[in-house]
Design a binder for these strands. Structure first.
Lengths: 352, 352
DNA sequence: CGAATTCTTGTAATCGATTACATCTACCGT
DNA sequence: ACGGTAGATGTAATCGATTACAAGAATTCG
């Protein structure tokens, strides 16, 4: 053992096992195990003897042995797409907190939309290395990813739904409805010519948000103008917003407001416009989606549609905790759709 | 097994073990184990038989059983302070990539500077749940954290050094020197009255950066003016920068340039100044530290001292990988100090 | 051709816990 | 006083792999 600054104790180099504790306490290993797991089923005196033996030896139960026998590792796998995107930071924070509190460790994996990575983590799951899986991603997971995941391992999805499956819990928001609300807000502020910067078309959320934009435009009878939909985003990132700025400048009849499918896109777009002397919101209003950490700190502070990321993380973790505790799917999966909330800041102005 | 969209195969509900494979291939379990671990030590024909048996049964070795016997879990624990701070995102990315490539899983833990959390993770380590530990944090770990971590588990530190210990590898930057360089750059641009916003005094890096600031000021013979050091940061965050802005406005003789101990602080400070009509860099120049993702996207883009976070992550992971592979400290620990790099953008202007 | 060496494979112990079952003691009511 | 029941503890099987050791088969070499 290594004890910073204090003299080396004369402990044996061998790791201490339950046997050592049992011997020292003068009981059997079964009793030690019980004293730890079900203290009330052991006589008070014995319990004390066991605990002091544990303290004296510095015993910590071996995780592998316990997992092997108990068929539970007390760990969950959290799969993230793995972009440098800080969107996931608060999610991961919430997950780690709830899981740790619940006695579970968090194994993270970045899928980086690579097939080999998915197979790798499929193997981790099949090896029984985790008791549950949480897929946090905007991408609809491909079939391969779940082939031969044992039924005994509960799986949950965050931020994207696999259509038509009852075997996963799903936690997401109504991307389409929330996007429509964002655009309706712009309309309520007097804007008539509103553009949209969608995310990468491959993602389900991006398509939903585009759908919401169209819904809101159509519902008030505005023409749906394809030249106002600036496709070409590769991701929810700054660069995509900057690229969209090119479309903006190429346009003769410019919009007075823009709805970006993500805050990062909005910020990149705003930056590019400001660089060329376009005022925000004086010349163009901008609204984003997500309410990431930097939205509030930008200049101007970004008006955006907030996703309750922390709360979603908490709920998803609690649900998985519950399902892992119940043997054999005793608890049904849940589909939870949380409401988004419009956060009004400085990047949208009213026009008449 | 669960196979999305395809009919349920008639597999037994019981999980398939090495026994099943052995029986099917007509060999002993020892041979199966060898075929997997040391393919060259079994006859080609047998090897083929084993592999097809594996394929047919869909066998995946049980991680717990393997760990128990082999005394290695192929997992590392990465400890982060756990603030929502996105500073660590690229670090975590690099770590996950290198470790996964090296065949190790990444267990994350957020210490949240809480003692109970540290004890919790100490227990995880002692339970043999991980083969190595990487502490990624600005805080000097307290003794408690390492008490009774077995010598067999290599530990590395990133971004902060525990003074006087040879038992950990350390990966950091010369915070003091780099800070002095940042301030020297301001001086080279003609600034004479330069303020500093330090990070929380409890952190070693924050103190080092403050030291660097003082070095550079003294070295050119400027007076070291305490009213230009705006203490009171609680963290490397926006709020601390905003708080420092109060000190700025309270001052009669204002500085022409400010060195902030972190980008987040710089951004919060800039935001607060701009809100009150102070131009950056026209009225005040600002330089940050870290070069986080948002520095380049802010308006004005932040001039800052870059820490090679990704590279540090890679190096630290590779070092730990090497030390875990060597039995019993065959490889000495290393102290690696990487160079920072000044990234000139728009937030500093030359004065005469 | 026989002994030595090398390959290949199997047998069985082992890792360190958990837990079903058995046993023993103590206490209870009638 | 005695059968019954509850409570406390021990015995030993078990989880699913790895691996030391042994043994048999094949090859090499003088």
């Amino acid at each position: 053992m290594r004890t910073l600054g204090t003299p080396e104790p004369e402990t044996a180099p061998r790791t201490v096992t339950i046997q050592d504790v049992a011997r020292r306490a003068g009981v059997s290993t079964a009793t030690v195990s019980r004293a730890i797991a079900l203290p009330e089923r052991v006589a008070a005196a014995t319990r004390e003897a066991v605990f002091s033996a544990i303290r004296e030896t510095g015993y910590t139960p071996n995780a592998a042995a316990r997992s092997l026998r108990a068929k539970s590792t007390k760990m969950v796998l959290v799969l993230l797409p793995g972009i440098g995107n800080s969107f996931f930071t608060p999610v991961l924070n919430a997950l780690e907190e709830v899981f740790t509190e619940g006695g579970y460790g968090v194994l993270i994996g970045y899928t980086r939309q690579s097939r080999s990575r998915e197979t790798h983590y499929a193997r981790v799951i099949r090896a029984g290395q985790v008791d549950g899986v949480l897929v946090v991603t905007g991408n609809v997971p491909r079939d391969e990813e779940f082939v031969s995941v044992p039924d005994t391992v509960p799986v949950s999805l965050m931020f994207s739904e696999v259509p038509g499956t009852a075997q996963f819990s799903v936690f997401d928001v109504d991307n389409r409805g929330a996007s429509a609300d964002a655009v309706r807000y712009l309309i309520s502020q007097g804007h008539r010519r509103i553009a949209h910067i969608p995310g990468a078309e491959s993602g389900l959320e991006a398509r939903e948000r585009l759908g919401g934009y169209c819904d809101a435009i159509r519902e008030v009878g505005f023409p749906l103008d394809e030249s106002l939909i600036w496709r070409g985003a590769s991701n929810f990132d700054f660069a995509s917003g900057e690229r969209a700025a090119k479309d903006f400048f190429a346009l003769d009849d410019k919009p007075t407001a823009v709805f970006a499918a993500a805050d990062e896109i909005a910020l990149g777009f705003m930056r590019a416009l400001k660089n060329r002397g376009v005022g925000i919101p004086s010349d163009v209003s901008v609204i984003g989606f997500d309410d990431t950490e930097y939205a509030v700190h930008y200049d101007p502070a970004l008006t955006t549609m907030r996703q309750p990321r922390n709360e979603m993380g908490r709920l998803a973790a609690q649900d998985l905790l519950r399902r892992m505790a119940a043997r054999d799917g005793g608890i049904p999966t849940s589909k939870v759709r949380l409401p988004c909330e419009l956060v009004v800041r400085e990047s949208v102005r009213a026009v008449e």
